[in-house]
Design a protein around this nucleic acid. Structure first.
Lengths: 255, 255
DNA sequence: TCTGTCCCTTTGTCCGACAAAGTTAGAGCC
DNA sequence: GGCTCTAACTTTGTCGGACAAAGGGACAGA
């Protein structure tokens, strides 16, 4: 017969973890606002009554989580976590889990269609201007696969931004980051790939401008199907995302 | 006239960052596989030729990123990052960015519908068994809002899992984690909420079993609309996610 | 074979120290 | 007075060493 529980499990978290938790609490509770200074390491040593090494380990944890960062003079301050920093960690996880391009493709189909629907409905003039500016740059580099792939990635970020839905914006990022390197390969390998890509972007902007949801969805589908056809000329959709893509992701994160 | 570049920018990253990067590279390159031991801190001190404090700061960074962890005896080993650990960080970011429930609702509508479509198409017998087991537990706790909300959250994780699409599984997590606490509030506040929730789950399992995509989508929509109606009795969809939800997320992360 | 003990290793934490880079304040100059 | 330049101070990144607590392993005894 089990005895009635008398005791709660006691909290034996190491000190550096408690330091990190304490600072995190203040930030998510809003008592420390993004941009507010955290104080010097010495300040924290005094406040928490632990050694500087311990403080520093706690700081690393928060820094990696994107909750705090150091400004130009390396002083600590709270900050709004940047999506791209966090999502690159997710992309990395997807690579380690060896997801297939089929999974990426299927998920992106859903996410990008949802993005364009939001964009068609809610894009502002500013969003459209950004997209148009991106299109102009894309047209200029249509012969340069690397530059074009980068423009393409940015284009879809801008579409997601135009949807005014930050949850969607964030949800699509991990998959999009893994897509990006393949776009370059495909544009390189398929002769008409570059022009088709730019044409699709043009139609997408047009659909957004005319608030034409059907056209937006249609061209997003086509655009992704183009990617798929191009990819299948190179490899099977059931291949898992290769480790090599991580180099792109790592470089992007450090930026 | 610009001089020809003689030198590359030199890498001035701090030592602890270099340590973290070096270990990360070995893991994502696959030279260190998940489960492999990393060695003791002292080993790393010898290998990298830096002080143990420096090593420890690097380890914290990787640990927070979910790439390495410590087993029962606190020895280091590489590991597959767990989605829930990473996505809880994204949820936290969404809270800090003060996203609205409308954004959550809209994104979830897309993501959960995509999940059920995948599940209808590809769920295995094992998936269905898990879902059925979850349903049984839900029926048992239909009068306990907190327990029921937890079952609901788990149910949708299982549906996403049944879609066999890990990208989707991961993309829906941040939004789902923010949903969870509200479910409890709604089931508490709306008398028929609990039974309706369980009934929807029953229909969803049924749709998966019959491979009936239409029914799956329909009941997912209804299920979410129920949530919405319940929520709007409490607050406006345009309210931003409150800081208080972070307490749930923090507790979940430590588990 | 199981168990209890002793020893060694490892981790978490602490202390003190120092060079490099940034900040601040004050001296000197216009 | 306002501006610049320098010197002192502060802060960070790194180092070396130290120690208690906890875990793992070997070894003796039941």
């Amino acid at each position: 017969m089990p005895v009635a529980p008398l005791f709660r499990p006691i909290d034996v978290a190491p000190a550096y973890q408690k330091v990190a938790d304490a600072i995190e609490r203040e930030i998510v509770n809003g008592r420390i606002k993004p941009g507010d200074p955290i104080g010097t390491e010495h300040d924290l040593v005094r406040q928490f009554g632990v050694n500087r090494s311990t403080i520093r380990e706690g700081i690393r944890v928060l820094e990696e989580g994107g909750l705090i960062s150091r400004d130009s003079s390396r002083r600590l301050h709270a900050c709004l976590p940047r999506y791209s920093k966090l999502t690159s960690r997710l992309s990395r996880a997807l690579v380690l889990h060896e997801v297939t391009f089929r999974e990426l493709y299927e998920a992106s189909m859903t996410l990008e269609v949802a993005s364009i629907e939001g964009a068609v409905e809610r894009a502002t003039e500013g969003n459209i201007a950004e997209l148009t500016e991106n299109l102009t740059r894309s047209e200029a580099v249509v012969g340069d696969p690397a530059a074009l792939a980068e423009c393409d990635a940015e284009f879809h970020v801008l579409v997601a931004k135009a949807s005014q839905n930050r949850v969607l914006q964030l949800a699509r990022e991990p998959a999009a980051q893994l897509f990006y390197p393949t776009t370059e390969m495909i544009v390189t390998g398929v002769a008409e790939g570059g022009p088709r890509l730019v044409a699709a972007h043009r139609h997408l902007i047009d659909a957004i401008r005319r608030r034409d949801r059907e056209a937006g969805v249609l061209w997003t589908r086509r655009h992704l199907q183009d990617w798929r056809r191009g990819f299948e000329k190179i490899a099977s959709l059931d291949r898992s995302v290769e480790h090599m893509y991580m180099e792109h992701a790592q470089a992007a994160r450090r930026r």
